[in-house]
């Protein structure tokens, strides 16, 4: 009877593989270098963990099948055993080695995904400010002078640098197929580096609970060729209205708005907060003429 429960996780692991065989799980279906690094890290760690599980399960099954009372003589008296120095050393040192290896992998991969993705030469990253407010995402392109709500378009052959902050509760900006998530907070700026190497539409969302409309706080991230991207920018510049401070305040107050596009950004009148770890220094790109008062986001 006992063995059934031991087999269960393996059956489920097998099912996972089968299921992911038909349609890859989102995390294992990366579309950019950053997400690919994470996917590989996760797959590697799963393999290590399966080996550890196997060791424990084999030992347990062994103990349970060999030393159950029904297999023992009725007068069998289990011996007194204090412990074993050799075994202690073995099962302390091996895990420490595993942990050391994983720690090295962690530091290496973390620093890799926290930098501009490799393989894009000297191309400067495209900077996009992504900010959240109840319950939407604002995307500002300072370089192009364009702003969108609840959708973001990015070119495929250029690294992207998202700069995140929030006009309210802490949110977490996440496009699983392109990069891992990061918090967007009201009092400091955080960054996500990523690049998309395939054109396509990817699900992006806030993954950190932020109140009533949290479940609907999704956006579409669309990766397109530089040519299409430039055309889209030209289009927005030509057809969409400018984003005034009044319009922006109204936008902040509205709970759900669907998609919107503007031909100017809110960064000019409502600059982003400072970068994490740079308290006291101003975010030079946006705060040239403003001082601390400019950061007051109460409304």
């Amino acid at each position: 009877m006992k063995k059934k429960v031991l087999i269960l996780p393996f059956v489920m692991a097998f099912l996972t593989l089968v299921l992911s065989g038909c349609q890859p799980l989102m995390i294992f279906d990366p579309k950019g270098p950053n997400a690919r690094t994470l996917s590989n890290t996760i797959i590697m760690s799963i393999i290590v963990m399966l080996v550890i599980l196997l060791v424990v399960y084999v030992l347990l099954i062994n103990m349970l099948s060999k030393y159950r009372a029904s297999k023992q003589a009725p007068d069998y008296e289990p011996p007194h055993e204090e412990g074993s120095k050799v075994l202690e050393v073995v099962w302390t040192v091996i895990p420490i080695l595993i942990v050391t290896a994983l720690a090295i992998v962690t530091v290496f991969t973390t620093s890799k995904v926290e930098k501009k993705p490799e393989g894009y030469g000297n191309k400067e990253p495209l900077v996009i400010y992504a900010s959240s407010s109840n319950w939407k995402w604002h995307f500002s392109y300072p370089e192009q002078g364009v702003e969108t709500v609840n959708y973001v378009n990015i070119p495929t052959d250029r690294p992207i640098e998202f700069r995140l902050y929030s006009f309210g509760p802490i949110t977490s900006f996440w496009i699983p197929q392109l990069a891992g998530q990061k918090y967007a907070m009201s009092d400091m700026l955080t960054k996500i580096h990523l690049a998309a190497d395939q054109e396509g539409s990817y699900m992006g969302r806030n993954s950190n609970f932020s109140g009533e409309g949290f479940a609907q706080m999704e956006f579409e991230a669309q990766a397109m060729s530089q040519k299409d991207f430039d055309e889209w920018i030209k289009d927005v510049k030509a057809k969409e209205p400018k984003l005034t401070e009044k319009e922006f305040d109204k936008l902040l107050k509205t709970s759900f708005v669907g998609r919107k596009s503007y031909s100017s950004t809110h960064l000019t009148f409502r600059p982003a907060p400072m970068e994490h770890g740079k308290h006291g220094k101003h975010d030079m790109e946006n705060m040239k003429d403003k001082d601390m008062e400019g950061m007051d986001m109460s409304h």
Binding site: L38, V105, T110, V113, G180, S207
Partner: peptide, 12 residues
């Protein structure tokens, strides 16, 4: 516990 991988597990 692996920080990099956690960027994909966090809040899920």
């Amino acid at each position: 516990a692996m920080a990099s991988a956690d960027y994909q597990y966090h809040n899920t």
